[in-house]
């Protein structure tokens, strides 16, 4: 099995429940960081304006500048930490961009982790303001953790809404007619089922010529196995087989796509299309 390079990581809880997260790397975090920087700058500018107008007029300019200095210090060191502690791992920038800080085992971070990972940003941004330490450390691990994250056992994940398409019911008469021409009792293997499901979900976004080109690869061996007439186009054959297996015969496509284990048939029925491992649905 070839190892995948991916930004998706699987976390298994002590209750043996698996969650898949997509981790956010330095470049995905950059817009959130820029937004937070803008917000901090905005707050400082407003404070400066207030000091100049209100404190200056009252003859308390010195006190005003002192308060601004405290504000700048507080924003620089604790803006991220305080927001992440109270907003469940998010700053305003992170909330807008749709990312969140979690612990490496998928739980919400606590206040200590929130503050510490933000304080350690001072090391991550070295040398100078160039952030090369953070960039290199984030590149070197699969969770894109900078030093602050490594020290606190945290990571930044993308909040995503996964769309579930469900079964695709074709209304195309040509597909329905082609499905009727397929042999009775046809069942598909797990891998073929996944491939057909992916094809049917995706083919509407492709041009007819491209669909035909892709479908041709699989249609050849399918024709040889099923004895399908040549009058049925390659694209139509794949969609008809999907319709026949999952709509007309009610084979569980969702289970196929999730890769659930299946009970192998005692003796393969007529027209079963099994892979080399014989993983018959």
């Amino acid at each position: 099995m070839v190892a995948h390079l991916d930004d998706a990581i699987l976390i298994v809880t002590p209750e043996n429940i698996g969650f898949q997260y997509r981790v956010a790397g330095p470049f995905l975090r950059l817009p959130a960081y820029a937004l937070d920087l803008l917000i901090r700058l905005g707050v400082v500018l407003v404070a400066l304006l207030v000091v100049r107008l209100a404190f200056g007029a009252a003859g308390l300019a010195g006190l005003g500048w002192g308060l601004v200095a405290i504000l700048v210090f507080g924003l620089s060191w604790f803006y991220g930490g305080v927001f992440e502690a109270f907003w469940n791992g998010q700053t305003p920038g992170k909330r807008i961009v749709g990312i969140r800080v979690l612990t490496v085992d998928g739980r919400p971070i606590n206040a200590m982790q929130a503050v510490l990972r933000n304080l350690l940003r001072a090391i991550d941004c070295q040398p100078g303001p160039f952030y090369l330490v953070g960039l290199v450390s984030a590149s070197a691990n699969a969770r894109f953790q900078r030093l602050g994250d490594l020290a606190c056992g945290t990571m930044v994940v993308v909040e995503q809404r996964r769309a579930w398409f469900g079964l695709v019911r074709s209304r195309d008469p040509a597909v329905l007619k082609a499905a009727e021409q397929l042999p009775a009792g046809v069942e598909v293997s797990r891998t073929l089922g996944r491939t057909l499901a992916a094809y049917v979900q995706r083919c509407e976004t492709l041009s007819p010529a491209r669909r035909q080109e892709i479908a041709h690869h699989l249609a050849q061996p399918l024709r040889a196995r099923l004895g399908v007439p040549a009058t049925i186009r390659d694209d139509l054959l794949l969609r008809a087989l999907y319709h026949r297996a999952f709509i007309a015969q009610g084979q569980d496509e969702r289970a196929l796509r999730q890769g659930s284990p299946f009970k192998p048939a005692a003796s393969p029925p007529v027209g079963v299309l099994a892979g080399p491992t014989g993983d018959v649905a």
Binding site: R194, I214, Q220, G275
Partner: peptide
């Protein structure tokens, strides 16, 4: 649909071997 083509070709190879 390159990812789809890879998937379809891999499945075609499996079927041909079978």
């Amino acid at each position: 649909g390159w990812e789809l083509e890879l998937l379809v070709r891999a499945e075609a190879d499996r079927l041909k071997r079978h």
